[in-house]
Design a protein around this nucleic acid. Sequence first.
DNA 1: ACCTGAACACCGTTCAAGT
DNA 2: ACCTGAACACCGTTCAAGT
Lengths: 224, 224
Amino acid sequence: MTLESRRPGRPKERILDRDRIAEAALAQIRSAGLSGMTMRALARRLKVSPSALYNHVPSRAAVLALLQERFAAGIDTSGFGSEPLREALSRWAWSYLTRLRERPELVPLIVAVPLAHTPYTSLVYQRVVAGFSAAHWPDESIIASLSVLETFIFGAALDSPTPEGVYEPRDPERSPLLARASAAFAATAAERGLPPGDLLFEIGLDALLTGMHQLWGATRRTRG
Amino acid sequence: MTLESRRPGRPKERILDRDRIAEAALAQIRSAGLSGMTMRALARRLKVSPSALYNHVPSRAAVLALLQERFAAGIDTSGFGSEPLREALSRWAWSYLTRLRERPELVPLIVAVPLAHTPYTSLVYQRVVAGFSAAHWPDESIIASLSVLETFIFGAALDSPTPEGVYEPRDPERSPLLARASAAFAATAAERGLPPGDLLFEIGLDALLTGMHQLWGATRRTRG
DNA sequence: ACCTGAACACCGTTCAAGT
DNA sequence: ACCTGAACACCGTTCAAGT
């Protein structure tokens, strides 16, 4: 596309910066999906020529990484150190899930570029480990507990956009057990006034934390 | 690209079919990633012109869906009905993980096109629900248990390609607890002769099944 | 320093023309 | 029925030319 509104050459005032680019990229993903976040579309949205972007950002991948970092920075890790472990973990997990639900357009992005190595990650790791340690969980169980939680949160976040009713059988006559279980689950969610996805997350987190506590939390190390 | 080896017009014998296309697509993803699986590259690999593919498959998305179905069909659900619930679930979970590890190139694909609506899924759902039901878990807990397991498996499968050593601190002096936990975990994996990812999956599955059992498995319904 | 616009080497998909 | 090849409307990225 040719821009008729601006002539070649450096403009009097700077049009772009990384912030504006990130903002526009988010809007673009929201309106056209990850694959619709093309450099050309981004440029169009910013009323700029595609090549202008490359003065601020080295590649499309870098734009996506920028969005990643901003996302990670929004996750609440404040519970670690100020609350009991289980509450802190729960706060962290819910915050992660909530942030991702606010921006479901980021889901494919989070998969493509895992959070594992952003600066936020190492901070969280240290805090979580300190929490387990203070609660006297055995050394060998700590990394596993952390990782298993992350895995579940990650999976839940990705599953979130799953349409409702996945568990309803197409032919209830032929799947009476599934139909009954599905109805019972829906009833519980309605009773508690929770979206099904929230109920699932709550239950899964509860099961995990309960299981981990049963396996390690109630035990003192036997060696030494 | 112009094919010099073949002239226009219908060839004497059929060159393509959906099977050959699926096979080549898998090879292409393996060698060039999901984004490298372009219709043109696929055609090149099959020594055919790109447009020839459209006689057998309506779109690139359909090629990917084809791979999905083949993947799903390879997951072992034979334990349901023939083994105790916990073993059947474990077999299913491990099979899913193993299949995906054999074809890590499918990970981005599984995310892009969730399994939730393939024919295999409803079969699994029915079997799992029947298992929980036979074990007298309360109706309201069944869908949640199933979903939570799926979520964990899904997350673990996606996390699998995570490089090792993510949990080792960059600066052990400043993160002594993390360093100690990390070493203890590695020692356990070595002791048991398991890859770290396998140990994590085993532990997570164990924690989940234990937690779920604690919450519902040991209880009789109190109503009615 | 920071923009434009042309250019290069790609895409997925359609369709007329061939056998 | 099932292939080719041209065409259409796209990509990401580079770079000379402009101010």
